[in-house]
């Protein structure tokens, strides 16, 4: 199953000389952060239900996913900390947010060295603890990611007979001058994959620490 999130729009726009054709969009492609996992119907359904982006012709969109061997409440407790992204995001060196975590909160993020950015200003668009949805928009910074908006969802699943979590993060963003859609998606996906691998490492590490009962019980 292939779901193409940006190629279709681009092709339609180019083919129509700028005018969008009324034909249904072609399938969209998205890449798994965890290459060993196969795309399943349930995941495609999650994408359809929770990760709707409508990129314009100068934008691109994509998504990454990760299966984590940790219960969903633990993973969600980490990702919902809008005020402390450094808990699981390895590229964050500092984060400053005033007041409580609520829709409309803005955080100032300082980025670690080695990346093509030093800071990012980010607004919390949605935080749904019942459905476990987090949506963030970039409103400033030197990262060249204009009008960046992301949706992250967390879903319970069973992995090897134990409670696990499927995390999906999708985004839409302007393609900067001088770059292609493919380059922009590749760049953002690389960063998101690293974030999700780190989230898995932190969550699974916490599970190991929480293992007070013997495994054979």
């Amino acid at each position: 199953m292939v779901v193409e999130m940006d190629g279709g729009v681009g092709v339609a726009a180019a083919g129509g000389g700028g005018a969008q054709t009324p034909a249904p969009p072609p399938p969209r492609r998205w890449r798994l952060a965890d290459e060993r996992c196969d795309l399943r119907a349930m995941e495609t359904d999650y994408v359809r239900r929770f990760h709707r982006h409508e990129p314009r012709d100068h934008q691109c969109s994509s998504a990454v996913a990760k299966h984590i061997k940790a219960p969903v409440h633990l993973v969600w407790s980490l990702v919902r900390r809008f005020d402390q992204p450094q808990l699981f995001k390895p590229f964050v060196s500092r984060c400053e947010m005033k007041g409580n975590i609520e829709i409309g909160s803005v955080r100032e993020v300082n980025v670690k060295s080695g990346l093509p950015a030093t800071r990012s200003t980010e607004r919390l668009e949605l935080l749904d603890d019942d459905e476990r949805i987090l949506s963030v928009r970039f409103v400033g910074g030197d990262h060249r990611l204009q009008n960046y908006s992301s949706i992250l969802t967390v879903h319970p699943e069973v992995i090897d007979g134990r409670p696990g979590t499927l995390v999906i993060e999708s985004f839409v963003v302007d393609v900067p001058d001088g770059n292609t859609k493919d380059e922009t998606c590749y760049f953002v996906e690389a960063l998101l994959k690293c974030n999700l691998r780190s989230l898995a490492e932190v969550s699974e590490g916490q599970v190991i620490m929480d293992q007070t009962e013997p495994l054979d019980r």
Binding site: L115, P116, E183, A190, L191
Partner: peptide
């Protein structure tokens, strides 16, 4: 892999 120009040429657009 990809070398992407993002504030200079970078591996995956990230590392210089």
């Amino acid at each position: 892999g990809k070398v992407i120009q993002w504030n200079g040429y970078r591996v995956s657009g990230i590392l210089a």
